[in-house]
Design a protein around this nucleic acid. Structure first.
Lengths: 216, 216
DNA sequence: AAAACAATACGTAGAAGTACGTATGTGCAT
DNA sequence: ATGCACATACGTACTTCTACGTATTGTTTT
């Protein structure tokens, strides 16, 4: 009984690595591979794979939206996300969109096999490096979920994030906005939680790297 | 005549892919692979590979600094950068540090073979997707680059800067390097002074915006 | 040999940030 | 009217970081 897999990542080297790992399992077969986001859904319709292994950051169309569209096809195709992003917002967004698994690219290759097997058994799989809390929080707050971490930030939070990135202290930001430093601390705490990070450095990196664009 | 290659990328899947492509060439041999930045230079000293294929974004110590240190070993080991970043500052920084090739991770796998062959012939290789302008700009502005504040940093300071940018606390960095948190504070203070900044946010921005340390 | 540099480490002090919890007021949607 | 999101703010506790100063040891340069 062959498991038919479609492989989606814009880095050919990653596809090579994934194909190599999957094909060590006699029952797994990579029926096709592609790196361009816009071509994924047509390929799913054509090949009707059992499983799609899907990167979040793709040219043309993001992994979250692709996941939604695959789910909308109602072919029973399961989507496993393979991504270097492990923060709560992205994991939750992917699960919300219909992914049945989320594997951290830094994981040991064996996890990929486990994720595919779990998907076929109808069990959700998360890399151990992704906190158990992520799943719990996801289930508790599903109704609030947005597809983009930045979109879940309030206007004030975005302002504060910007000023943190500029290197201003909480007191300087408070002075600039005409509010209490205690309120800045609240916004900061909210930012840390919403973006799934734990330090100023990570906030700054978040700002700069994505600008603000989530991997979609 | 065997070409001995050390493979460095924190994503096991990428290492699998690269290994698979390289080992299709009978004369290429991957003698070792590693994902942790701090362990690369000791491995180079141990194995004395002909070529190191090196990702820019690594935990513990960045690819640029590693390239410098490998060059400093004077073993004749050639460094080829394999990165998803193609912008000028990263390419230039890598070349400046002593890399002899820069391959875009989105390239066709055949480019990797070409880059290794070019390196062995003493020829510089750049992925075609990297503009010819990058190389020209690099040559024209080499004299400006030498005055970069980064040059005045000690190797230890660069290590600490990298880890600060990763979001680690002083205590975590101390533990990782096996020294006192008080020493980390000293290095940090020196970094702030040498780079003329006053906060963690500014250190992080410096790292990222100067393209010296690739974003994670 | 002496000086400079790099790495290591500590004392003292205070600023700055994170975490957990509490609360109120306003505006908007149901 | 009620509930929710947002903005504002505080109490308590602690961690983390910055600033200024001290010191020793080893290595390299002059």
């Amino acid at each position: 009984m062959s498991v038919r897999i479609l492989l989606v990542d814009d880095h050919p080297l990653v596809r090579e690595g994934v194909r190599r790992i999957l094909e060590r399992q006699p029952e797994f077969r990579v029926v096709e591979e592609i790196g361009e986001g816009l071509q994924v859904v047509p390929l799913v319709q054509q090949f009707k794979p059992d499983v799609v292994i899907l990167d979040l950051s793709l040219p043309g169309l993001g992994g979250i939206e692709i996941t939604r569209q695959i789910k909308g096809l109602a072919l029973g195709t399961r989507v496993i996300i393979l991504s270097r992003y492990t923060n709560e917002s992205y994991v939750a967004a992917a699960l919300d969109a219909g992914a049945v698994g989320y594997v951290n690219k830094q994981s040991v290759p064996q996890e990929l096999i486990q994720a595919v097997s779990a998907a076929l058994s109808g069990v959700r799989y998360l890399s151990p490096s992704i906190s158990r809390e992520v799943l719990n929080d996801y289930q508790e707050s599903a109704h609030r979920r947005s597809s983009s971490p930045y979109k879940i930030l309030t206007p004030r939070e975005r302002q504060v994030l910007h000023m943190v990135t500029e290197g201003l202290t909480n007191q300087q930001i408070a002075t600039s906005l005409g509010i209490s430093v205690r309120t800045i601390e609240v916004h900061r705490s909210n930012l840390l939680h919403k973006l799934g990070v734990q330090s100023t450095a990570e906030l700054v990196r978040y700002s700069i790297e994505r600008g603000i664009l989530a991997p979609e």
